[in-house]
Write a protein that binds this DNA or RNA. Structure first.
Lengths: 222, 222
DNA sequence: GAATCCCTTGTGGAAATTCACAAGGGATCA
DNA sequence: TGATCCCTTGTGAATTTCCACAAGGGATTC
């Protein structure tokens, strides 16, 4: 069974709950860090002392400013951790349930478990710990559902940029101009029009307003 | 000091953290309930036995389905509780930070404290408990900020309906038609155009797409 | 009752977006 | 090389939205 576990979670009341639950469930030494950089530091320090962590349980969103979810930093944290200690096991324990985000996460990061916070998140987390300890991966029912949804359209970079500009109030002409300036193709007024039309079709949106509303709700342009 | 405290929080890892923090901070009996109806039941039961709770710490969003925040149920819970036990003290402890929602909440409910979950939410919560125990009200810095923001535009019912229809892909003509059918005035094509223009001005949006995006981000049309 | 203000609605033209049809260019394949 | 396909871009017309100016109606005030 795991001997050293590190928990990264910035919200204090959640941190407290997770730590005490994990402590009760395992015989491991359980440490905790409230911020990304602190987490990385502890991992490096443990490595240096030759008593490395064998499991990291991490949230995805850390409050840089409290207004925005910022999954980037959670991703970055995991990437950095993997660089300094490739063999560490990682379980993501987060409130993030949007299929698009979960999918994109699994596509890029190599983690051992993904558990969504919720009514019975902790019991799912203990299941995940057990599974990962045995060398398996674990996804909780909620995230499994999200991963198995067929109709989750993924957007490429071009489409995300386009939709973001629309959300920012750019006219099609202005988007064209901007794309030309930034050497992004296709960039003619006309092609941009077509791309938008295609997106409308894909998401069954009747207007561009609805289109941007939908992709925003799905968390595709954050 | 409080003698009986009830905590309503559905997410298990949060519940655990809050309960243990509150237990450590007070000498009170601390009970917990994971669902709204259960909370109400416990309060009624305690009243019947003549050992009522003197403080309720409640979240606002309870997961009926896990996809949507549902502040309504938190509001409803508090309303119901106030009916059966008007003198109970109430502290809201929630992740909800959107100014519009906090404001609308304070306008309608009579609560004694409002604390936002966050990095140091628990220490704010203990401050709130102390203040409320002394007969004062307490709002944490984050929610105080939200309440003091000047530029938080509130939308009336008409505007919300209008924006929702826009988000649903309705054309201005279709909105007009719909408003006529439902006896909502003003309902001429022309007036709807004007209302939208006014909203664009209010929110400094260049296009209707941006307008709907903005109000959606602010949580004004959920 | 007249003056004033505010809101709703109308009109017409400008601007932006949507749509159908089509030309050109590059890639693939027989 | 020619045929085919896919993507980008263009053109012009229809639809939708934006905007400036103004008329009518109800409420308030003097």
């Amino acid at each position: 069974m795991f001997k050293k576990i590190l928990i990264a979670e910035d919200v204090d009341n959640e941190n407290l709950g997770i730590v005490s639950a994990v402590k009760e469930f395992t015989d491991a030494t359980v440490d905790t860090a409230q911020f990304c950089d602190k987490t990385l530091l502890k991992i490096k320090e443990a490595l240096r002392k030759n008593i490395p962590y064998d499991l990291l349980i991490s949230d995805l969103s850390f409050a840089l400013d409290y207004k925005k979810h910022n999954i980037t930093s959670g991703k970055q944290l995991i990437e950095e951790v993997k660089k300094v200690q490739p063999d560490i096991r990682i379980i993501v324990f987060t409130g993030e349930k949007k299929p698009a985000i979960i999918k994109s996460f699994f596509a890029n990061q190599k983690i051992n478990g993904y558990v969504c916070k919720g009514l019975y998140g902790l019991s799912e987390l203990t299941k995940a710990i057990t599974a990962v300890d045995r060398g398996n991966t674990y996804t909780c029912p909620v995230s499994k559902d999200a991963l198995h949804q067929k109709n989750v359209l993924q957007l490429n970079k071009y489409e995300v940029q386009l939709l973001k500009l629309l959300a920012k109030g750019y006219k099609q002409d202005e988007i064209s101009q901007r794309f030309i300036e930034n050497n992004i193709t296709p960039n003619s007024r006309r092609s941009i029009e077509d791309k938008i039309r295609k997106l409308r079709d894909d998401f069954s949106a009747k207007t561009n307003i609805q289109l941007v509303y939908i992709v925003n709700q799905l968390g595709l342009i954050e």
